[in-house]
Design a protein around this nucleic acid. Sequence first.
DNA 1: TAAATTTGTTAGATTAATCTAACTTTATAG
DNA 2: CTATAAAGTTAGATTAATCTAACAAATTTA
Lengths: 218, 218
Amino acid sequence: MISLAEENYLKALFNLSNEIGEVNVNELSKELKIKMPTVTSMMKKLSEKKLVYYESYKPVKLTEKGKKEAGLIIRKHRLTEMFLVEKMGFGWEEVHEIAEQVEHIQSFNFFEKMDELLGFPQVDPHGSPIPDKNGKITWVEYNKLSECKTGDIVKLSAVIHTSSDFLKFLNTRELKLGLKIKIKSIESFDKSMVVSYGKRPSESLSHTVCERLLVEHV
Amino acid sequence: MISLAEENYLKALFNLSNEIGEVNVNELSKELKIKMPTVTSMMKKLSEKKLVYYESYKPVKLTEKGKKEAGLIIRKHRLTEMFLVEKMGFGWEEVHEIAEQVEHIQSFNFFEKMDELLGFPQVDPHGSPIPDKNGKITWVEYNKLSECKTGDIVKLSAVIHTSSDFLKFLNTRELKLGLKIKIKSIESFDKSMVVSYGKRPSESLSHTVCERLLVEHV
DNA sequence: TAAATTTGTTAGATTAATCTAACTTTATAG
DNA sequence: CTATAAAGTTAGATTAATCTAACAAATTTA
Ligand SMILES: [Mn+2]
Ligand SMILES: [Mn+2]
Ligand SMILES: [Mn+2]
Ligand SMILES: [Mn+2]
């Protein structure tokens, strides 16, 4: 059995290693807001359980078993977020906190039913891929909007750093997944972009914003 | 803050006091499958928090605050059961275990949304009343089918002792809430009843079963 | 490379929730 | 009304998950 606390460590490890590759105790500690000595002792425990590879003073890595368990928790998280948005009418900025709790529910059928009712979605409301029943993720390579050039027409496919504040900001600009965006110009001094999309012929987006928007070329 | 463990004690206390009136440590211990010394120490803690009245060797009682908190947890439990049945397609025999976990989710909006989507239901899939937003239950007085007499026509309104096995048994007999049942005869030697309902002109129900079916006279 | 900083570990304490063993109080049965 | 049984408490141990303080290793900076 994997406890709720252990599940949160596995999930954090999985997410961090996809973002930054190797994960050290310090980073895990910051991510989880748990002090380093606690993280160290949890790594020893997870290592006993064959969920991570851990050696003193070295970065931590998930084992295959650990990856699978983490993937399954993230699957539950993302299916939940999708269900909350698609079937219960929540906004994409409201669902993370709830999913953070629901992901720990132990019931195969509960998430199976969500999956069915949603028609087996491949991504969550933020465009993040939903792991399959083996915890495996199919990665799709997107580009950051910030890396596109003037004249490009792209489709908004995912957002990163999905804080509630950032998502609310995107709401105010009517920026949603699936939207076609045309890059009209790029300011060289601050890398901000002027773009058009939907019913908005001219919107200015800061470089910070553009770095958080993932797009596909169309 | 009320911990998950504390929530389970409050809920058990609420349910038991509605079934049997005064609740002593021993009964609580059996209900929760937690040893008596643990229950005693938890009663001291809940007493500190003004959620129960507790004195050594006396039965335990919920305070008004305790009743409200317990009612709100039961509200979440029953809304969840209703949502699982009505919106997710689960059978009434499958929902209790899941609701037992979901009831601890901390999110006003999550349960608010369920309530709305369900159209503010008054009872759960087993006919148990759903407490209001103040944790208050409106009790409706039903009769046990076992206490009815030959010739009575009644509506099945709720079931008690909602074990999965019992509910599966009711499924095999197509017994559902809302059904009109006519009592054709009662065997004096074992108090079993011969009844008709739906497309079933003659079904025999044991006294044990009849004691667990709550009905309204029509 | 030596000093300073950052990162990581060890040791020991704390809190919540549980248990067993031993003892006490209350209830029940002769 | 005593003896036995049932219910309840106290004391002390255990496990999981956290913390702080002190120390150690590794990395960065000067
Ligand atoms: Mn999320
Ligand atoms: Mn979580
Ligand atoms: Mn519960
Ligand atoms: Mn129920």
